[in-house]
Design a protein around this nucleic acid. Structure first.
Length: 154
DNA sequence: GCCAACGTTGGC
DNA sequence: GCCAACGTTGGC
């Protein structure tokens, strides 16, 4: 099993939005970055656990946990001319963009802020903390995942 | 709103 | 294939 951190802007799609969806599942569409696509296409497996991270908001940080429930398939928003994620270079025959479906698991009692994460030497290797990292999906280790979950009790 | 950092594009 | 220009991300 793998562990991931996935960023979302809560104004657009928050963990609460995911929780309120029927069946608490949602397609993770609109990713238009090759590295992030490759992670979804090649490495994400059903059952993988996800730290759901809120970015571009008053308190950026980890809001809770979600899980991969469907492995990668073509992102239909790339075919939709009316979608902001439309990409004319992606076709049904040769889909360029892939996505997965994720499901709500749990919310932390309080957001584990980016500020707190930076103060933890054990988390220093996380890509999200590296200067200039803009990747919306990054792999994390089980120990990083577990450690952040444990910070919720502290 | 600013701006550093990064990915993508496109001319050559 | 290089690289300058551009657009986007995201913390502050």
């Amino acid at each position: 099993m793998n562990y991931w951190l996935m960023k979302s802007e809560p104004d657009t799609f928050s963990l609460e939005h995911l929780k309120k969806m029927p069946k608490m599942t949602s397609p993770w569409d609109g990713v238009r970055n090759y590295q992030a696509r490759n992670f979804m296409r090649d490495e994400m497996r059903k059952g993988d656990l996800i730290l759901f991270y809120h970015s571009s908001c008053p308190v950026p940080g980890c809001a809770g946990v979600a899980q991969v429930v469907r492995e990668s398939y073509p992102d239909p928003s790339a075919f939709d001319k009316n979608s902001p994620y439309y990409d004319p270079k992606s076709s049904m025959d040769a889909p360029r963009w892939m996505m997965v479906d994720i499901q709500y698991k749990s919310s932390f009692n309080q957001v584990i802020s980016l500020k707190r994460m930076r103060e933890e030497p054990k988390l220093a290797q996380m890509k999200i903390l590296q200067k200039g990292c803009r990747l919306s999906i990054t792999p994390i280790t089980k120990s990083e995942f577990d450690y952040i979950c444990s910070m919720d009790q502290a």
